[in-house]
Design a protein around this nucleic acid. Structure first.
Length: 350
DNA sequence: ATCGGGTACACGAGCTTGGC
DNA sequence: GCCAAGCTCGTGTACCCGAT
């Protein structure tokens, strides 16, 4: 599916929030900005010249997409900041930066200018994603999409299946969940009649309650084969919630069993689950919303997977998330495991 | 629907001017 | 020669419009 960046704010944000990709794009383009306050800056005139469009066209983008552009680094310099920026500019002129000399005939800033539109590199990319008419912008959009895929592939070694395991919280959450899962299956063994369907059915009920998909549907959406573990692909926030359900429902089953004094039937357990779900509805609501939103948004951005049932929860993936899963602190599971060995031992001895 | 063009007004820093 | 008021200029912002 080819994304049309010019008409999807969500897709634009998902690229601009990916700092790694933005960094790659900067290196790739070699469009040198003026370093100011730690960021590379471009004046409105520079941006217009780069894309070979009228300055007026950039003005119109500013009128129609102001908040988005501001969010991605567009600013108006005035007063003291403008003075400092002009100084930085004239210093560059002295050292004779060819990039700046070549572009256009006039000065980048008039001496008496009292306000100035300035973009960061990210803002410049944002403009590229909005300009429909510029051929250079169109080419840049295509390169960006390739770059995003490349960096994703580079980081993840070709597969996005286990991208969920790359963040710091995954291993502790997975280990905790593993323990609660054991308690849960123990509870199903102890309190429910012998029935080959009980594990699958009640697990699916938990999944349905949290993210509106049964295990089978989830597998299809993430293209997992039968040997691949569903839980190994879940984000820590989802795993935590699964743990909460398993722990809570195990206890609920035990009480029902003790009250009844004999083994429960699977049909009874299903009714009990419905009760449990209603009882915890309000308490779990905020966590469910969060888990659904993170899961749907991340799977869209990282795995190119669409959870149809969670469509309304899709939003942008935050910069923090991109860093968490793809940035310097992100790591493969093998690295995480050796790091978390003490946690593992602690949980095992519980 | 997008783009370039036009107009009008606001703003503030630098320049000009005129009174002392 | 000095100072402050007022003017000038480049820019931003917000409209509208017609050509393509």
């Amino acid at each position: 599916m080819v994304k049309d960046l010019t008409n999807s704010e969500l897709d634009r944000k998902n690229i601009l929030n990916n700092n790694l990709a933005v960094q790659e794009a900067y290196n790739y383009l070699g469009f040198q900005g003026i370093k100011f306050e730690g960021k590379f800056r471009y004046t409105k005139i520079q941006v217009a010249q780069y894309f070979e469009v009228d300055v007026r066209t950039i003005n119109r983008l500013l009128e129609n997409h102001r908040s988005e552009l501001d969010q991605h680094g567009h600013e108006v310099f005035a007063g003291n900041r403008l003075r400092l920026f002009k100084e930085a500019l004239s210093q560059l002129k002295d050292i004779d930066v060819p990039q700046l000399e070549d572009e256009g005939d006039g000065e980048l800033v008039g001496a008496r200018a009292t306000a100035l539109n300035v973009f960061t590199f990210k803002g410049f990319l944002n403009v590229a994603m909005l300009l429909q008419g510029s051929e250079r912008a169109r080419q840049l959009r295509a390169s960006i999409l390739d770059l995003v895929l490349d960096t994703l592939n580079q980081r993840l070694g070709g597969t996005t299946k286990y991208v969920n395991q790359r963040e710091q919280d995954y291993v502790p959450s997975a280990l905790r969940e593993f323990n609660y899962r054991q308690e849960f299956t123990n509870a199903l063994d102890k309190y429910i009649d012998q029935n080959q369907f009980k594990y699958g059915q009640l697990t699916d009920r938990i999944y349905m309650s949290i993210f509106k998909e049964k295990s089978k549907e989830y597998r299809q959406i993430l293209k997992l084969n039968t040997k691949e573990s569903v839980r190994a692909t879940m984000y820590s926030e989802v795993l935590d919630l699964v743990s909460a359900y398993e722990n809570g429902f195990s206890d609920y089953l035990r009480k029902a069993y003790e009250e009844k004094g004999e083994l429960l039937r699977l049909s009874e357990a299903n009714v009990l689950f419905k009760e449990f779900e209603e009882m915890t509805e309000m308490a779990f609501q905020p966590l469910k919303e969060k888990a659904r939103s993170l899961m749907a948004s991340r799977d869209m951005a990282f795995r190119d997977a669409l959870h149809e049932q969670l469509k309304e929860y899709i939003s942008e993936v935050s910069q923090e998330d991109f860093d968490k899963f793809l940035g310097e602190k992100s790591k493969s599971l093998e690295e995480r495991l050796s790091e978390n060995i003490d946690v593992f031992i602690r949980l095992k001895n519980k």
